[in-house]
Nucleic acid binder design. Structure first.
Lengths: 205, 205
DNA sequence: GTTTTTATCGTATGGCTATATTAATACCGT
DNA sequence: ACGGTATTAATATAGCCATACGATAAAAAC
């Protein structure tokens, strides 16, 4: 057999180049030729690793979404191993959704660019809706656990509280790029979560 | 002189056709030829009313933004003439930002499509940022007035409260298209505004 | 060492698009 | 009625882009 190449890694590299390109020239500015130039390879090589331009863009989007999810999961795992209260876990998790550093800001911009295409692309819209629903579900579960644990009052509507916190976070993420102070925003988000989780856990989980 | 044509009205008609086109095929699916076909006119006529495709899209976006703003302003004016408390005025105004009916949902989708292009278009990004800042400023003013009037506690940070309510509203608007219950959402928004404006106005303004 | 499979590259091409241009039309003031 | 101009239609053009294709290199298998 010929030269051995890690296909997945190469695809990831190319997708990363496409992300830089989107960041710089927008989703519409992406052409296969420019993607190849950004990645420092030939057009033919891009074609070798992606069957079509659509496949290339889909892989790029998937990579961005996965990285955003991974950031949140990492924050959750870290908080859980530190035996922090659910309130703190949720606060850290939601904080990870905000475009506070360069990397997550780029991810957010790119995911926003794709979001603008959901209008005419049912597949993309479906993926987006599913992702939102999953996140909202996890958040609702956290609130529910908070009720069982004693951090959240018993009369709280877990689903409504989750929807509210999530919408607030996404709204902040949207507005952060447009003249909102990061520190104040994070502080407000912290207070909002604290308002939903006012109690203390009765037992160590 | 020749045929008299209301330029502004004709431009608005064409822009409305472009909006339908964006709604159906996405912002990328817009071509001058399709725009002409959707509007039921020739390509040459589109060229006559818009110097370039960019100008056509900009006019469309501007029309959408203006209509969204007008809806809010109308709600505010109506509420004010009814001598409603500021709380009710703000509630109605924010409610108008949500894509609850077909028209505002279309406007929201289209503005989202344009938002996805702010990545690479500084002019568009600037316009968007300004619009957000203006809205946030108006909202902060409403909260400030509420403090003077007695509806809002004196220790409320008007700017922070405005930023929070606005982000929440925009977040809800974003999530409404993806599996959020409209009625519950409106109710939650109403409660949130009520929480910021818990008092009663001391005097009739 | 030959063969076969994979990787990479450069170029060709067919289609689509924005826009320029040219010609035709219709209406108004006089 | 009629010239002139705003308006409309139709066509031409030049550029760009995704994708197809062919050629070359390289490395494993035997």
């Amino acid at each position: 057999m010929p030269k051995l190449v890690d296909h997945a890694a190469r695809r990831a590299e190319i997708a990363a180049a496409v992300q830089r390109l989107i960041d710089h020239e927008g989703l519409d500015g992406v052409t296969v030729a420019k993607a190849a130039a950004t990645a420092g390879i030939s057009v033919g090589q891009v074609q070798h690793y992606f069957a079509s331009k659509d496949a290339l863009l889909e892989a790029t989007y998937r990579q961005v979404v996965e990285r955003m999810g991974a950031r949140v999961q990492a924050a959750v795992r870290e908080s859980v191993t530190e035996r922090l209260p659910i309130r703190a876990v949720v606060t850290r998790a939601l904080r990870e959704y905000l475009p506070l550093d360069a990397a997550s800001a780029s991810d957010h911009r790119v995911s926003l660019a794709f979001l603008g295409r959901t209008t005419a692309n049912p597949d993309l819209a479906g993926l987006h809706t599913e992702t939102l629903a999953a996140t909202r579900g996890q958040l609702a579960l956290a609130v529910h656990n908070g009720k069982e644990c004693g951090e959240v009052p018993g009369d709280t509507d877990a689903k409504a509280a989750a929807a509210r916190l999530f919408a607030l976070t996404d709204g902040f993420a949207l507005h952060l790029g447009a003249g909102l102070d990061p520190e104040e925003t994070v502080e407000t988000l912290r207070e909002e979560v604290a308002a939903v989780f006012p109690g203390r856990c009765r037992q160590w989980k």
